[in-house]
């Protein structure tokens, strides 16, 4: 058996191996190897011109396919900034939720893409399926009437109602529920405190009469500014969750199993300890 015959025998084996891959990326890489071997076959068949063209075309082709396929492999996460959970840190993003999502995206083999938007828009983005996962300290309140998919909770939390003793003013509801904000928006109350930093500033200036905040935001609030406020702790036990776009049932199930596995392996506790002490 000559070298040429050995290479020829390899060709169908690699072709079958490549075209039976479940993920398209595996198939593409397999066909890249196939193309290289084929160039070798051409060279041994005394067709060096064709071999050179095959090498060049194979390289260009691999690039086209990979560029086209990995377009699909993007995990679009949308949310607003939340202290400890999901915040900007210089050029990068950090936080508890970010670490969970990062690990999740790595497990699925997807690129993580993050977009920070005001809280009210998160719901719209998820419903229109422009984003896959909503993050940023989301709590499923009883008023949640949206058709978003809600994942398992990963951290226990509480609501804190803050009411001013001196000011009669706006009601701001930074409570973590997308749907709640939607209802408030429909009632014509444009919320000027779309971002958490705006809320902090509002409390500093004493503009806010009432607001509800969740645990991490409450911890992050400046306690000096809260001296003028009455603080009531809600007795209801809640959990932080992720919201998933209604079209992404598979991502939803994968996310639930991922969180379950993180909890059972104790990894979740170490991440929580790193961010919340």
């Amino acid at each position: 058996m000559t070298t040429l015959q050995g290479l020829l025998l390899l060709l169908p084996i690699i072709a079958i191996f490549a075209l039976t891959r479940r993920r398209p990326l595996g198939a593409i890489l397999g066909m890249g190897v196939f193309s290289l071997l084929l160039a070798g076959v051409y060279l041994l068949s005394h067709a060096p011109d064709v071999a050179l063209v095959e090498v060049a075309v194979g390289a260009a082709f691999l690039a086209f396919y990979i560029l086209a396929v990995r377009k699909k492999g993007k995990l679009m996460v949308i949310g607003d900034e939340t202290p400890y959970l999901f915040y900007r840190k210089g050029e990068d993003v950090a936080g508890l939720e970010y670490e969970i999502l990062r690990g999740f995206a790595d497990k699925l083999g997807l690129d993580l893409e993050i977009l920070f938007v005001p809280r009210q828009q998160v719901h719209k983005w998820l419903i229109s399926e422009d984003a896959d996962i909503g993050a940023g300290g989301v709590i499923p309140t009883t008023s949640e009437k949206s058709n978003l998919l809600i994942s398992d909770g990963y951290l226990k939390t509480r609501l804190f109602h803050i009411s001013s003793r001196s000011v009669d003013g706006r009601v701001a509801g930074i409570s973590g529920s997308h749907a709640l904000e939607e209802i408030e928006n429909k009632n014509g109350m444009a919320d000027p405190y779309a971002y958490f930093s705006d809320l902090c500033a509002g409390i500093d200036h004493g503009e806010i009469a009432n607001c509800s905040v969740d645990l991490v935001r409450f911890i992050a609030l400046d306690h000096q500014a809260l001296t003028n406020y009455d603080i009531k702790r809600d007795s209801e036990d809640l959990c932080y969750v992720f919201t998933v776009s209604p079209g992404e049932k598979e991502i939803y199930e994968e996310l639930n199993t991922y969180i379950k596995r993180l909890r059972s392996s104790g990894e979740l506790d170490t991440i929580i300890a790193r961010y919340l002490g």
């Binding site: 050179l52 090498v55 060049a56």
Partner: peptide, 8 residues
């Protein structure tokens, strides 16, 4: 060689 392989 030739135009096509070199160009690619």
């Amino acid at each position: 060689g030739g135009g096509f392989s070199g160009g690619a």
